[in-house]
Design a protein around this nucleic acid. Sequence first.
DNA 1: GAGTGGTCTAGACCACGTA
DNA 2: ACGTGGTCTAGACCACTCC
Lengths: 247, 247
Amino acid sequence: MGTTQLDTVPEPKYWHLKTVLSEALDSEFAVGEILPNERELAARFGVARATLRQALEQLELEGRLQRRRGVGTTVAPPRVGVAVGDAEQAWPGTAADSWQAVDCLEAAPPAAVARLLGTPAGRPVHTVRRIRRTHGQPVAAELLYVPGHSVPGLAAIDTASGAARARTVLRELQRLALEGQDRAVELGSARAEDAKQLDRLPGAPVLLVTTRYFAEGATAAVAVATYRADTCRLTFGETGVQLLAAG
Amino acid sequence: MGTTQLDTVPEPKYWHLKTVLSEALDSEFAVGEILPNERELAARFGVARATLRQALEQLELEGRLQRRRGVGTTVAPPRVGVAVGDAEQAWPGTAADSWQAVDCLEAAPPAAVARLLGTPAGRPVHTVRRIRRTHGQPVAAELLYVPGHSVPGLAAIDTASGAARARTVLRELQRLALEGQDRAVELGSARAEDAKQLDRLPGAPVLLVTTRYFAEGATAAVAVATYRADTCRLTFGETGVQLLAAG
DNA sequence: GAGTGGTCTAGACCACGTA
DNA sequence: ACGTGGTCTAGACCACTCC
């Protein structure tokens, strides 16, 4: 093979910066510590502020840094593992989980969700909003879409509103026999509304977890949960942990 | 005057741009179609190129666009779902899966991996590299870390190298009884080496899937798979699909 | 009000793919 | 050789938090 790889591939400045900063974070900074501000860091490294920011953005994406407007840039704690897997092989809201119902409204779901539900596009469904917190911090915002036919008993008790109504929908849903579920994870950016609930700016990177709940041979509900990608590590199938603990 | 909060909260330009572009993509462009170049788009919308790029970056993050240096910006196809879940509740490389062994070397794993393996930091382990392809496109690059004690029979057949050696390690691993596994998904940015294999630039957003394999009451191996976040949707637990198909 | 990160501009040059 | 996206600069102003 002739291709000598020896060409000096000029590494971009921001990439090199990121490496240097990353090593400095490991050795010279403690979790929660405040870094010098962007203007000073840029000056110290002899680059434009925009270039420095490119490096900081990557480190934030990797969960190493946390930046807050008006406050500063701090060293982020390790990501928290949040269980998303079969541990909750049950309807949402069943046990005393870490979710908190916020409210419930009737609205037409996004086209992609309507397709999963098998309902006609534009048809309104019960839409339950929930928030998930860990150690007091919000980690996820969820929209749970429940077609009317999944909660037939609901019409009679239609008076409640807000969180109470959300809980009623969840309770009615649990009357169905759950036959299975289905999950997908992908990268997204936070919608303005979710961003506010997650204490982030709009467009922040998030992990979108789409769950389909099956009952009576059809899709009974679809949940789209928006997890903060900077602070969360989604964990699945905790079986092994118990094995280790037992051994 | 009671400061009514009705003040038009000035939406960032790039955010508005993103919305406009997103709608245009839905209605006026077909998958694979080439958009006008960045300089022309910026001029057309009356913004600086950097601002336009901010919008494009977000759309790329969401999997709506694909940008390639020297080529242009095209409308991305919908993300492909890649199964990561229990469907492969088995040792890696067991069946004729979509993975392809590349090579195998002896190297000290990252500290985080050494911790999961329970091996001393700095101790070299067998490191198998694999690539996963879907429809011909590379979607993931993986490093599988296998401590020597998990493949005791390997020393005798140490002669092979490259892909052959990688396959040997995988084969030896399958002699152990798999007792369970453990997965976590988080956001990361592609290391230079992975980026090359995935046909992306370094730093591109990726989904890191860390899998622990348990055998004989301990962690027998750890895999860190790097999935392209722009083109992939990770799917877990396909049980429901079969239910639907049967119903 | 002072200081922080977030947005935006109008340029320049570079690396890459293709013709 | 050309056109593309990628990197980089040196400024400016804005939105937010905290004092």
